[in-house]
Write a protein that binds this DNA or RNA. Sequence first.
DNA 1: CGGTGGGGTTCAATAAACGAACTCGAAAAC
DNA 2: GTTTTCGAGTTCGTTTATTGAACCCCACCG
Lengths: 170, 170
Amino acid sequence: MLGKDYPNQDCSIARTLEVVGERWTLLIVRDAFYGVRRFGDFRDHLDIPRAVLADRLERLVQEDVMARRPDPEHAGRHLYELTPSGRELWPVLRAMLAWGGHHRSPNSRLFHHADCDTRLDEDGRCATCGTTPPPQDIVMVRRRGRGAGRDDPVTVALRTPHRLLEPLET
Amino acid sequence: MLGKDYPNQDCSIARTLEVVGERWTLLIVRDAFYGVRRFGDFRDHLDIPRAVLADRLERLVQEDVMARRPDPEHAGRHLYELTPSGRELWPVLRAMLAWGGHHRSPNSRLFHHADCDTRLDEDGRCATCGTTPPPQDIVMVRRRGRGAGRDDPVTVALRTPHRLLEPLET
DNA sequence: CGGTGGGGTTCAATAAACGAACTCGAAAAC
DNA sequence: GTTTTCGAGTTCGTTTATTGAACCCCACCG
């Protein structure tokens, strides 16, 4: 965008949008919640131009939403992971998930409370225990009969139930 | 953005971002919650180029987030108002408000439950009655000692407590 | 009936996104 | 030990979006 910020807006929403409001950014954060950590996995799953992905990851690291560290299994490569402040973006994604699910098309993935095996409602609450579990206690499962579409390694790996923030093996 | 959509993403978040993910769009929706309805008021409050504002409003109308109707007080002009589906974007804005308030800077406006006069927590819940009031039951007030910054008519009108979705008199 | 003012549209310039080609470094193959 | 391969970025020319200024149109005012 021409100027990524909103300098004259005295508003926390504007501050948030300055961090995650650019094209692709929230989908990168979403994938990070799904366990994606490698440059190439983001790229394969999002069909995003390399240069844009590199730019967005760098900015997310600058803004303390993600952290970059060396990949212990592959010298010279990196892993990108959500920081504590990045993990607090889950409510933003959950709200968008609910709106898009209501007003556009139902999501192809469902979210269950790991402890109770109960499907979470749209506010992220578990009807069984009454709590709103944090991402690491949420298991994502594929909705029956959905999710054929893509065949990149990330999409394939996400066909089996997967706990949020758990590193994805591709 | 180059291509406003994410055609290969089978995901409700991507669907939502296709509607409200472009630059300025969520700030326009925010202002609509604050009671802004006229082209010029959006313009004055956001410092947004006219052409972009016209484009965004048209798209929001197409997408059934806002509705455009003739302004009964001014022939030839229009009022832009949130539709029921647009009003359901409030949780998205509330989540961004909470994140930006925590991790960037506290918001200059606070939100109270009109019935209980209790400040809402960051999930939008009222500690007094335990409900999560809808936008039309929320009163926005200025945080003490904040909000000097701008002096456009909208900012001035919002200095006094104001119920969300209530048309703003400028 | 000429002026004013709000609400848009048009236009040229700038910036961002795109995708293909390129570079670099580490490991694997030979 | 040399070459090949591969993932991870960077560079670059092209396409598209954003910007701000200029312009147009309509309704009302004097």
